[in-house]
Design a protein around this nucleic acid. Sequence first.
DNA 1: CCCGGAACCTGAAGGC
DNA 2: TGCCTTCAGGTTCCGG
Length: 273
Amino acid sequence: MPELPEVETIKNELVPYVRGKRITDVAVYWSRTISRPPAEELCARLTGQEIKGLARRGKYLIFRLGNGESLIIHLRMTGALLVKPASDEPDQYVRAVIRLDGLALHFRDPRKFGKMWLVDDENEVVGSLGPEPLGKGFTPEVLAQLLAHRTAPVKALLCDQSLIAGVGNMYADEALFRAGIHPMRSGKSLSAEEIKWLHHAIQEVLRRGIRNKGASVTNYFRPDGAKGDAHKEFRVAHRGGEPCPVCGTPIERTVVRQRGTYFCPRCQPAIKL
DNA sequence: CCCGGAACCTGAAGGC
DNA sequence: TGCCTTCAGGTTCCGG
C-alpha cells in the first residue's frame, strides 16, 4: 500500500513523463473514484490544461495545473498510476485514464478505494494534514507535543494523518521497532529520550524507503509497472514468525486499531504503568 | 476533543 | 476441486 515513500517515488518517476504536457482527454470508468467535482465536470475542466509540475503532501499526489487549479490523487490501498502508450486498452481494474500528448496515465485500482479531486485550492483536500515528517518543521519537540497527554496506542497515533502526514501501517511498525517501543504503549507514556529515538527512527525508515523506491509488500507499482525494494530490508513489518534480526525472538503479530501490527516482544517490551 | 469500531471494496489465501 | 471464510489497510463517518 502506498505510504509516503511510495508516493514520493511515484511522483519522482512520473515527472519526466508529464511535466509540461497538456491533457488531451480524460475518461472515467468508475465514477466514485472522482470525489469532486462530479466526474463529467472534472473531465471537461481538465481537458486542455497543462501539467506544470508535481508535488506530494503526505500520501497525496498533487498535479499543479496551468490555470492554478490542482488535480489531487490518493491511491489508498491498491491504487497505481501507470504510464502506458496511448494505444493501450485499459484493463478491467483501470478506473480512469488521463491522456496526454502521445501517452496515457492509467489510474488502476482493483479495490476502488482511491480518490481524485480537482480543486482551486489544494488545502481543501490536504489542509488538515499534520507536518511532513521529513520536513524542517518536524522536530523531536514537535513529536513530543503531538504525543503528549494521548492515551491511544503510539502505533495508532503515528498512523493518524492529522498528526504526521504520510506514515502508514508498514513504516509505523518499522519505526517503532528501530526505536524499541511497543506499539501498544500510550503516547503519553513515552519518555523524552524515547521520543527522540522515535523521531530519528521515523525519518530513517522513510528515507530508506524512498532510497529503495518504495515497498512492494502487497499492491504497489511504480509508473513503469516495476516494484520497489524497500520491503526487502523491513525488519518486522509483515514478518510474523520470522526471527528478530537483532535478538532472534520470533516476530509477533497483533492487531492495533484493526490493523495488523508486527513487533519483537523482546526488543519492544510492553511497559506497565 | 479523544478514542475505537464499522464501512468502503475485491483479490488472495487458507480451511474443510 | 470448490465453496466458504478471513484477511489486507487508508480514510471517513459515527457513537460513546
